[in-house]
Amino acid sequence: MVDIKVLDANRLNTAANMLKAIAHPMRIAILKHLEGGKRLTVTEIHELLGIEQSTTSHHLGILRDKGVLCAKREGKNTYYYLKYDILSQIVDCLETCTCE
């Protein structure tokens, strides 16, 4: 059992903010598409999800702002990827927990 007194309040706050950012169906789908070290552009993600590019950019901005995603500009494109590969385990856990 984890002793709550040992946990750092700043780390807990960061973790909570990351979870809040992930807590949206489209953002979970984005994470799923970025599993396995994939790097995708806004255009690629919006085409995969079938939503507007501006909506995709909005979701990516939230995930990036909260430390879930990173972005790297290469030429005209910006590629998005998981900041920590282990975050995909959260999505896997959610899939397991929601199966009937």
Rank of each mutant, 00 (worst) to 15 (best):
C70W: 03
E44H: 13
L34Q: 05
H33R: 15
L12S: 06
I62M: 06
N13L: 07
K66T: 01
H59Q: 13
N10T: 05
E74C: 05
G50A: 02
L7W: 07
L7R: 10
N13G: 05
N10S: 14
I45R: 01
T56V: 10
A71G: 13
M1S: 11
E74Y: 11
E35T: 10
D3Y: 04
L12C: 08
I62P: 07
T78K: 07
V68M: 05
K76V: 07
E47S: 13
G37M: 13
A23C: 13
S57P: 02
N17E: 10
E95N: 12
E95V: 10
I86S: 08
L82Q: 00
N13W: 07
G36I: 13
L48P: 03
G61F: 11
D85M: 02
I22M: 15
L7V: 12
A23W: 15
Y79D: 03
E47K: 14
H46T: 00
D3P: 11
L49P: 10
T98D: 03
I30E: 01
T96I: 11
H46K: 01
H46Y: 10
V91M: 11
K83F: 02
N77G: 02
D3C: 14
H59P: 14
C70V: 09
K32F: 04
R39E: 14
G50C: 01
C93S: 15
E35Q: 15
H46S: 05
L87G: 04
H33E: 14
Y84Q: 13
S54P: 05
N13V: 08
R64S: 02
E74T: 09
R64T: 01
T98A: 12
E100F: 08
N77A: 10
E100C: 00
T43K: 13
C99D: 02
E52P: 09
L12H: 01
I4S: 14
Y79T: 04
L87W: 00
N17W: 09
L31M: 15
T43Q: 08
E35V: 07
I28M: 04
I22L: 15
R27D: 05
K32P: 01
D8C: 12
G50Q: 01
Y81H: 09
H59R: 11
G36R: 11
T41A: 12
T43S: 11
L87R: 01
M1Y: 06
E52N: 05
H24P: 12
T43N: 07
G50Y: 00
K20D: 09
E95W: 03
Y79S: 02
Q53Y: 11
T78C: 00
I28K: 08
Y79P: 02
A21V: 10
M26W: 09
V42Q: 12
I90E: 00
L7T: 03
L94F: 12
L7E: 05
L48A: 13
T98M: 13
I22R: 10
L31S: 11
I22P: 13
D85I: 00
T78M: 05
I4L: 15
L31T: 06
A9V: 10
G61M: 13
K83N: 04
G36V: 12
G37I: 14
A21G: 15
L19P: 06
T41F: 12
L94R: 06
M1V: 12
Q53A: 14
C70I: 11
Q53E: 15
T41V: 07
T96F: 05
H46A: 04
K20V: 08
L12K: 07
N77S: 09
